[in-house]
């Protein structure tokens, strides 16, 4: 990531302009970045460090950013890579789901048709934030990330492909697998509460 940023300068901002770009293009996204960091690390201090590292990198490599392009996607990409490279290894949170195992299990893009009966509309409306949050947090990081990017932040397939550095086809299949798992988790919760 860092090498790539250094190799691709798109702009040459004078010093005063750098701060202007930073304030106007990067700072407005800081709440989103903090939320993303928290959903990856589950820890306030780690989230602060991760956001700070992201913004420091964004400033250091600001010439790789072209004003008026998608700053939010660029920042997400930096944060995601910082997380993978620097934080994932020391993360206090053990990996709850083995990605390979899950990927093999859900190796079809098609959703099993009977999966829809696991969860009905009338059960989801009674769910509270904690249950939703626990279900999302229990997803493997790769799956959690696509749900956050698509459903919470509204990124397109193309933007997600750039942020995650994977082909659009992989974005799609990963997203749909993530949705299947999330629905199942919410479905088992609904079931445990006596629904269905």
């Amino acid at each position: 990531m860092t090498d790539e940023l250094e190799l691709n300068p798109k702009s040459a901002y004078p010093e005063s302009q750098k701060v202007h770009v930073f304030d106007n293009e990067f700072m407005p996204h800081i709440d989103s970045m903090y939320n993303f960091a928290y959903r990856l690390t589950f820890d306030e201090d780690d989230s602060k460090d991760l956001v700070q590292d992201t913004y420091m990198k964004a400033y250091r490599f600001i010439n790789s950013f072209q004003e008026g392009t998608n700053a939010k996607a660029w920042l997400y990409r930096i944060l995601k890579n910082s997380f993978i490279n620097d934080y994932r290894k020391k993360s206090k949170q053990p990996t709850k789901v083995d990605y390979q195992e899950v990927e093999q299990y859900y190796n079809s893009e098609d959703t099993p048709k009977d999966a829809t009966v696991d969860l009905r509309m009338e059960t989801t409306k009674d769910m509270i934030g904690d249950e939703i949050s626990n279900a999302l947090n229990s997803l493997a990081i790769d799956f959690r990330t696509v749900i956050i990017l698509c459903d919470l932040e509204g990124f397109t397939y193309e933007e997600m492909a750039k942020i995650l550095d994977i082909p659009i086809g992989t974005v799609r299949s990963r997203l749909h697998r993530a949705r299947n798992i999330l629905r199942e988790k919410l479905g088992s919760y609904a079931h445990s509460m006596g629904y269905n």
Partner: peptide, 14 residues
């Protein structure tokens, strides 16, 4: 589910 995620997940202020 998508609506629930958007509506019910806690949004933290930095």
């Amino acid at each position: 589910i998508r609506e629930l995620l958007k509506r019910k997940l806690q949004k933290r202020k930095v």
